[in-house]
Every structure is written in structure tokens, then in C-alpha cells.
Design a protein around this nucleic acid. Structure first.
Length: 556
RNA sequence: GCGGAUAUGGUGAAGUGGCUAUCACCUGAGGUUUCCAACCUCAUGUCGUGGGUUCGACUCCCGCUAUCCGCACCA
């Protein structure tokens, strides 16, 4: 990893744009902050990183991939808490029309005004009578939520109903819970992953690819039974990692140790932190530029119980690129409350519970007419009575004395066997900002060196994510070398998962340099001898080493 | 959103109230060349955007948009 400097950052950004990896979107129309294109080289980089991510998590064995719409009805995000939590509260000055942030108006009186609810804010504004910063009047309209989600309308005209572009992919996994639960034969634990676009109408996108208005997210929702002790094997991760814990500050420790000491509060969170580290290093993040930081309670999202961020060091400092949150039962419970649908899993007891009932209940046919409106209350009261109660008996209900006669009641004796119970699974969610990870793997892979006294730069991308797998280069495009090279190139492109570039312009050294700059791991050079012996030169990017290989033995 | 700076070919820069706007690299064509940005010839391509001042604006002024740096915000 080179040292991160502003000069290096601008050279890297220039290269990414010039070579078609990452570039500002819609630039011919003046561009738009927070929106970026992956260009002709970056497009495949993104899809390879995405695919690597999916396969990485699927290798756990109990993970499925789903895909949900980005356009999301209002009710879904209201239930999830985003409509309420994901907003700034504004109020209009009725005198001059200027909108102000409600919490800012009263922040001199209340240091934590931003955590107030809408009605609290209205009450305090009434009480404090803050003046309008623009016109000094004190005549405020109602407080309204200005949401940071992109608004839209689903359907046309008056039949359209309000919706949003999703701010995270997670909600789709929760609303699909029953389908995923059935798929896994109703057996926990299991997870669903989804990779796709998310949208946040950021007030001010900054720092290039770091804060975007439309971005690629990859999330796993992993559903667990909170009463089952999790046992994960951490022996594979025997090297210490940098953890910044809420209580102990920066420490260096293995994942297994941090879990067993309770620094990481849940085994599955720790296991996914380790799994996350493996993914990040696989796609080209340098381990020395990676650390995990635990959220303080006041920065935790509205749904989280414990949360660790994976932070990556790059040109913009330490940036959070992954959040691994224990969301508890928050999400499923919220959607269950909002819809009345059961979003639960069934837990069979080790021993069925036997509940014996031995007491009294009312005889509806007699008690109903006798007590009329109070019949329901009478039934409840009678079922509370001891089994050895004698009738008639007098009960006081809502100020009335009622005499319960033997004919109003009957014995209630039964034995019920309860085999298990429904419960709301807990969720552990690793959420990845794919764009931020792509930025950092480029930042970590970008190497500026010297070659025969000249500046030389290359991307040392792992083959796993390199956007171009191989370049095919005829030494010269004559005597049939070009034709042979083109044949090899097309054969490679037709193979599953292989992408080749044919390049015949410029000297061979220039073409190697071009390939290195975008991180092509291998170059194949066709020379005069190739025409006779069917051998080509295979050149490795990082070492420059070359060896002769038979065309039929190329391992792509 | 606030304050400051900036905006010239694909990239990086120079420059002027008036002449065909300059340079390097890159890109393309041809030549040359038997494996790491070689060389020669030629070619393509630029003043962010809208308005104003002016006989004339890339240059001066204003708005907008975008970018960068602080502040604020950040699930």
C-alpha cells in the first residue's frame, strides 16, 4: 500500500476516469453530485465484486439469494421505522416563509434537541418562542418531517399511492420472511442475501465514491433463535485483529478471544466479522488497513443492539464500509405489528409442556341471558375461582353484586399438551457498502512505482475481481500474428467467466503498461514463433515474469 | 445548508478584453521496430452553464451547476 496523499488521490481519480473505471455520471449535462458511473472497465469490476460477495456468503451453506424491488410502498418503510427516524424536522416561518430545522431553533435551550420527536419539538417551540433566523418573527407553522428518502408515487393520478426508493435492501428480506422460512423447511438458523441499489437523498454528498445518493448495497439477514447458544469455530482466525471496543478502546485480539471475553457480545456477530474480514482481503483490501469499531450506544441505529463497523483506511481516512449489527427482533416484530401477519418461527420444546386446567367456567346458555352485558366479565371472574369453590356465590363486578348460581356454571377440567411455541427470530445483519469497498480495493491496489527511471503505475488487483482477466497482444499485427491473436482472444471470451481484451496498438511495452494500469493479471503475446509452434508468451502482471505456454494449455 | 477556493481537448497544465487559444501525455492512421510507456509523419479533440457589461467576453460582473477544503449532517 502506498502512502495516502492528496496528490496520489488526484492521480488515482484521474486514472480511474481516464481508463473508464469510475467516473461522474451524466457529466455531459453538468453531472449530479453523489451519482457515479462504473465505466467500460469498472462495470465488470463491480459485477465481479458483487458475485464474489454472494458466493462468499453462500458458502456458509444455509444462505439464499433473493431480489426485491427498489420501489417500496410507504407502509413498509413506515413499519420499519424509516419514515419516522430517517428525517430532519422542519418548520416554516409563517411571516417570511423560510424553512428552519426545528431542532436547531431550540438547540440553545436543549443540547439534545435532535433526538426529540415531532410533538416534543412542537411543544418546545411553543414554549421557547424562538425567533426566525431570517426575519426575527416568531410565528411558526407545524413541524413536518423532511425525509431523506427519495419520494415517489406508485401508480398514476389520484390512484397513485405514496412510496419511496428503498434506503436499504434489508426490508425486502424481512417482508419475505415467511417464504424464506418455508424454503428452509422451517428450521433456523438461515439467511438471505440481496445485492442491489439503495437510495438516500444525502444533504451533501462528499468525498467522491464515499457518500452517494444511489449506491450498491449487499446485505445478509441471518435469522437465529435467541435461546439457542451459538457455537462457532474461530480456530481458523488465529491472528489478532484491531478492534476498537466501546469499553476497552483499541485492542489487538483474535475474534475468538473477543467473543469469549464478551467484548463482541454475540458469537454470530463475531463469526460474521471474521467472515467479513475474509471477504475483504479476498477482494484486495490490505489487512493492515482494516479495523473493526464498535458503535457507541448513541450512534447506534434505531433498530440495533450491538453493532461493529469494518473500517478501511484509504485516501479519505478510516471509512466505515461494513456494518455488522445485531438487530434483535426489531424488524420482524415491527412488520408483524403493522400487518397482523405472523412473522415467527416455531420452537419445539424438549419436553412438551402439559397444562392441566381444573376449575370452573360459565355455561353460556344460562349465564348469557342472566348477566347480559356483564356475562364476559363474569366468565373471567369464574375462571379465576378455585376448583373447590361452592355455588351459589356472590361476586362484586363493576360495583354490582351478582349472585352466581350453580346452574350458571360448569366444571372445566382439561389437560393440554403444548409441544412448542412461536417466537420472533433475532437477526444478525452484515451490511456492505459495495461502492465504498470497490473504492478502497482500488485505493489499496493502486501502486505507483518506477520502471527504468519512469513513473509507472499498476493495480495489483486479485484475479478474483480483476475486471479484465487477460489481454491478448500480437507482437505485430502482420504475417498472421494478428489473426492468430484474434482467434485466441475470441476463444477466451467465449469461455464462461473469462473476459479478454485484444490490443494491437502501440509498442508491446506500451500495451503491457496499459494492461497493468487497469490491473489485468495476465498478458498473452503472440509472436512469429507462435505461428509455427502454437506456443505463446504468458506474462504475469505483478512480477513481469514470462513463460512459453502451448495455446492448448492456457488455463483460462 | 453555511463559509472559502476552483472549473480551459480523454488526462494534466499554460494563457489573453480582439489574430486560427498553447503545451505535454493520451487516443487514432501510416511508417519503423523480434517482448516492457522507443522513434518519425499525419490526424481527431477544449474555454462547465445561463444571463449581463462591451463594437467585441474564454478573459470582467451576476445567477446556476459541479468539484475540492473546512463546519454541520451521516442508519
Amino acid at each position: 500500500m502506498d502512502e495516502f496523499t492528496p496528490e496520489r488521490l488526484s492521480r488515482l481519480s484521474g486514472m480511474l476516469k481516464r481508463r473508464g473505471i469510475i467516473l461522474p455520471a451524466f457529466e455531459i449535462h453538468g453531472g449530479s453530485a453523489g451519482l457515479y458511473d462504473f465505466g467500460p472497465v469498472g462495470g465488470r469490476l463491480r459485477s465481479k465484486v458483487s458475485q464474489t460477495w454472494i458466493e462468499h456468503w453462500q458458502s456458509l451453506g444455509n444462505i439464499v439469494e433473493i431480489s426485491c424491488p427498489t420501489v417500496t410502498p410507504y407502509a413498509v418503510l413506515e413499519a420499519s421505522g424509516h419514515v419516522g427516524e430517517f428525517s430532519d424536522f422542519l418548520t416554516d416561518c409563517l411571516a417570511c416563509g423560510e424553512a428552519s430545522r426545528a431542532d436547531h431553533l431550540i438547540e440553545n435551550n436543549h443540547p439534545n434537541a435532535e433526538s426529540f420527536s415531532k410533538s416534543q419539538l412542537e411543544a418546545y417551540i411553543d414554549e421557547m418562542e424562538p425567533r426566525c433566523p431570517a426575519c426575527q418573527a416568531c410565528d411558526w407553522g407545524p413541524v413536518k418531517a423532511e425525509n431523506l428518502m427519495f419520494n415517489t408515487k406508485i401508480g398514476a393520478g389520484s390512484s397513485g399511492r405514496p412510496g419511496f426508493l428503498r434506503p436499504e435492501t434489508a426490508q425486502g428480506m424481512f417482508t419475505s420472511f415467511t417464504s424464506i422460512y418455508r424454503h428452509f423447511r422451517e428450521r433456523l438458523p438461515f439467511g438471505a442475501v440481496q445485492i442491489g441499489k439503495g437510495y438516500r437523498n444525502e444533504i451533501s454528498p462528499r468525498q467522491g465514491m464515499i457518500r452517494l445518493r444511489e449506491f450498491n448495497m449487499a446485505e445478509l439477514e441471518y435469522f437465529i433463535d435467541p435461546e439457542v447458544d451459538t457455537h462457532h469455530d474461530f480456530s481458523k482466525w488465529d491472528k489478532p485483529v484491531t478492534l476498537i471496543s466501546q469499553d476497552d478502546g483499541e485492542i489487538s485480539m483474535t475474534f475468538g478471544e473477543a467473543v469469549s471475553k464478551g467484548i463482541i457480545r454475540h458469537g454470530t456477530v463475531g463469526y460474521f466479522m471474521a467472515w467479513t474480514m475474509d471477504f475483504l482481503t479476498k477482494v484486495g483490501i490490505q489487512p493492515e488497513g482494516l479495523r473493526f469499531r464498535q458503535h457507541r450506544p448513541d450512534e447506534m441505529a434505531h433498530y440495533a443492539q450491538d453493532c461493529w463497523d469494518a473500517e478501511i483506511l484509504g485516501s479519505y481516512g478510516w471509512i466505515e464500509c461494513v456494518g455488522i449489527a445485531h438487530r434483535g427482533c426489531y424488524d420482524l416484530e415491527s412488520h408483524e405489528k403493522a400487518t397482523g401477519q405472523r412473522l415467527r418461527a416455531w420452537r419445539t420444546f424438549d419436553e412438551p409442556k402439559v397444562i392441566e386446567t381444573n376449575g370452573w367456567t360459565t355455561d353460556g346458555a344460562k349465564a348469557g341471558p342472566a348477566f347480559r352485558a356483564l356475562a364476559g366479565k363474569v366468565k373471567e371472574a369464574v375462571e379465576e375461582l378455585d376448583s373447590d369453590s361452592c355455588f351459589p356465590i356472590t361476586l362484586e363486578l363493576q360495583g354490582e353484586l351478582l349472585e352466581i348460581l350453580p346452574e350458571h356454571v360448569k366444571r372445566n377440567q382439561k389437560t393440554e399438551t403444548i409441544a412448542g411455541e412461536w417466537f420472533i427470530p433475532h437477526v444478525v445483519e452484515p451490511a456492505f457498502g459495495i461502492d465504498r469497498i470497490i473504492w478502497h480495493l482500488l485505493d489499496h491496489s493502486y501502486l505507483e512505482t518506477q520502471k527504468s527511471g519512469e513513473n509507472y503505475c499498476l493495480l495489483t488487483l486479485p484475479e478474483e475481481v480483476a475486471p479484465v482477466d487477460v489481454c491478448v497482444l500480437p507482437l505485430y499485427e502482420k504475417d498472421g500474428m494478428g489473426v492468430l491473436a484474434e482467434t485466441i482472444h475470441r476463444d477466451l471470451c467465449s469461455k464462461k467467466g473469462v473476459f479478454s481484451i485484444y490490443d494491437a496498438s502501440g509498442s508491446i511495452g506500451r500495451r503491457y503498461a496499459r494492461a497493468d494500469e487497469i490491473g489485468v493479471p495476465w498478458c498473452i503475446t503472440v509472436d512469429h514463433d507462435s505461428l509455427f509452434d502454437n506456443m505463446v508468451t504468458l506474462r504475469q502482471r505483478d512480477t513481469g515474469q514470462q513463460r512459453r505456454v502451448a495455446i492448448s494449455d492456457l488455463s483460462f
